[in-house]
């Protein structure tokens, strides 16, 4: 039977770790709620953009823009991988990297020039370990990515795309579907493909019959809508990644706290047994000693 004191020591250390994991779970929950609110606020913006695009299409404008068109030949591509800066969030970073690597290999096989950008320390280290060279590293994104920061990145990609430095941009990130489900996905952001996320529903048919005046002209508005919608979409990726990270951490820490509880239960039982057998042993010794004296 193990030493009772050693068991007690172990139990104490597990109790301390449980305290830490429980606190981390609470923090992740609070951050998750905040991140969720921000994501909801961004939705208000994207909805409006989609509406404007709908109105432009309703006005009979042919939605065409250089950013929307597929290039004939793709000479160079960039992949942006969104991971977290910190660990202890279960399989979050692992699944992003697992999704990203096959795509990177595939692109490298077909396109002469592929560059990888990463956001998050975990991704930087993970890719380095797997022997993938990275170019730009964005380490400043925590649970609340700022639009200003994302816009800078978006603008650098836009200008590279417009000047012909890159012909394609893929983003690998964790898409948030619900609290119980987040999936690591790859999205081709440039060329944009289509503007609206989903075809306009007939729900606001009534409103779209209103005649709109376009100032200065529908074409000029379109010229501005396309880059904006790219920026917002990239921002949405960052927000989704941030929310998913917090959810992943929340669940991982919840599991850790529960496992610590189970372990403590097990250890307590072993500890009590060890203590009891130690006491029994001591009593036996005393009785033996007394009997030896009497005899």
């Amino acid at each position: 039977m193990a030493n009772a004191r050693a068991l007690d020591k172990r139990r104490k250390s597990i109790k301390n770790i449980r305290k830490i994991t429980r606190t981390m779970e609470l923090i992740a929950t609070a951050r998750y709620k905040k991140a969720m609110d921000r994501a909801a606020a961004a939705t208000a913006y994207t909805d409006q953009i989609t509406k404007i695009v709908g109105r432009l299409a309703a006005a009979g404008l042919d939605v065409a823009h250089p950013l929307l068109e597929q290039r004939e030949k793709t000479n160079s591509a960039r992949v942006l991988v969104l991971t977290s800066n910190r660990g202890l969030c279960g399989g979050y970073n692992g699944s992003v990297l697992r999704t990203a690597l096959p795509r990177i290999k595939e692109l490298q096989a077909s396109i002469p020039n592929v560059t990888i950008d990463v956001a998050g320390k975990r991704g930087v280290n993970g890719l380095k370990f797997r022997g993938v060279e990275t170019d730009e590293q964005h380490l400043g994104f925590e649970d609340q990515p700022a639009y200003d920061e994302v816009e800078k990145i978006a603008e650098s990609y836009l200008s590279r795309y417009i000047t012909g430095e890159i012909d394609r941009l893929d983003v690998v990130y964790t898409r948030f579907i619900s609290t119980g489900k987040q999936i690591a996905t790859i999205e081709t952001m440039l060329p944009l493909g289509s503007l609206a996320d989903e075809p306009a529903t007939d729900a606001d048919d009534e409103q779209s019959k209103t005649e709109y005046e376009f100032l200065p002209s529908a074409e000029s508005i379109l010229e501005e809508v396309v880059p904006t919608s790219f920026k917002v979409r990239l921002f949405k990726c960052f927000l989704d990644a941030a929310v998913s990270e917090q959810v992943a951490r929340m669940i991982a820490m919840k599991g850790a706290t529960e496992s610590a509880g189970d372990m403590i239960k097990q250890l307590s039982m072993t500890y009590n047994r060890a203590r009891q057998s130690q006491i029994t042993g001591e009593i036996m010794e005393i009785i033996g000693g007394v009997e030896a004296l009497e005899g």
Partner: peptide
Amino acid sequence: PMFDGALGVMKGRAPMIGR
């Protein structure tokens, strides 16, 4: 502050989308 100059809006303006 429109793309090509200022534009005042008061109640009852016709629907518009502007840059």
